[in-house]
């Protein structure tokens, strides 16, 4: 199929960017969105032009590197799908596809479609860990975990940190990401010792990074490739309020 692409091109974080139009022929419906971009880049290199920079790694929806805005939606039109898992058969011959990088003050554009998401790493550093004694591995059944809690913790831990929640949020809030990272530890017995410091510390870091605030639009949940629920946001809010009441 033939596609009309409008791709955000930007030299570096300080240069002004603009949408550049490309027309791409013979795109297979069986190729992935990233393979389509690979095809474009091959042609650009062949013509001696600078290829489009986009981030990618695993190409199977688990690393969280590859998100871009596709026609105004994070990771494109398919639900629970990362950009790399999006098939080109989702589009029709002759379609125009607009591709932009994530937009957030905390995600400066490095080049073209690639943004710097280390702000998310700093949120995790502010409390996304548990204290464990080093040494030999403890007996696996030493700490009993209710089945329901371990399942829920896993749901939150499925967050791949792609940043789609921030990108899609009209407020540019990172609540869904932060709450998943707070929540998957706060629901487990191993996470209890630092529970309230974790909530207070990670929320404070999130706000210091310049992310917006949550208006409960639930756009984040709708675009999350892992289907993380906004229930985690309520849980984080509760732990944050309790932390404040405890004077943390």
């Amino acid at each position: 199929m033939r596609l009309h692409l409008q791709i955000w091109r930007q030299e570096n974080s300080s240069a002004p960017g603009r949408l550049v139009k490309y027309t791409l022929d013979d795109v297979s419906g069986d190729s992935s969105f990233l393979e389509m971009l690979d095809l474009l880049n091959e042609q650009l290199v062949g013509k001696g032009e600078v290829p489009v920079v986009f981030e990618h790694d695993c190409r199977e929806g688990i690393c969280g590197a590859c998100g871009v805005m596709i026609n105004g939606q994070a990771h494109g039109p398919s639900a629970r799908t990362a950009t790399c898992q999006l098939h080109m058969r989702t589009f029709k011959d002759g379609d125009t596809i607009q591709i932009e990088p994530w937009r957030s003050v905390a995600f400066p554009v490095i080049r073209d479609l690639m943004v710097d998401r280390t702000s998310m790493d700093r949120i995790v550093q502010a409390g996304g860990f548990i204290s464990v004694r080093t040494g030999s591995a403890p007996e696996a059944n030493l700490t009993p975990v209710p089945k329901g809690d371990s399942d829920e913790a896993f749901d939150a831990a499925a967050c791949i940190g792609c940043g789609a929640c921030v990108a899609q949020c009209p407020n540019g809030a990172a609540q869904l990401f932060t709450s998943a990272k707070v929540g998957h530890l706060n629901i487990l017995p191993q996470g209890q010792p630092e529970r309230y410091q974790r909530a207070a510390g990670m929320v404070a870091r999130m706000e210091a990074e310049g992310f917006g605030s949550c208006s409960n639009y639930r756009e984040c949940e709708a675009v999350c490739p892992k289907g993380i629920s906004v229930d985690w946001i309520a849980r984080m809010n509760r732990d944050f309020l309790l932390a404040r009441l405890k004077g943390l």
């Binding site: 026609n71 003050v105 407020n171």
Partner: peptide
């Protein structure tokens, strides 16, 4: 302030 550069296109889901 959290999104100083607006999207050309943002399509709420």
């Amino acid at each position: 302030r959290a999104r100083p550069i607006a999207y050309k296109c943002l399509d709420p889901v």
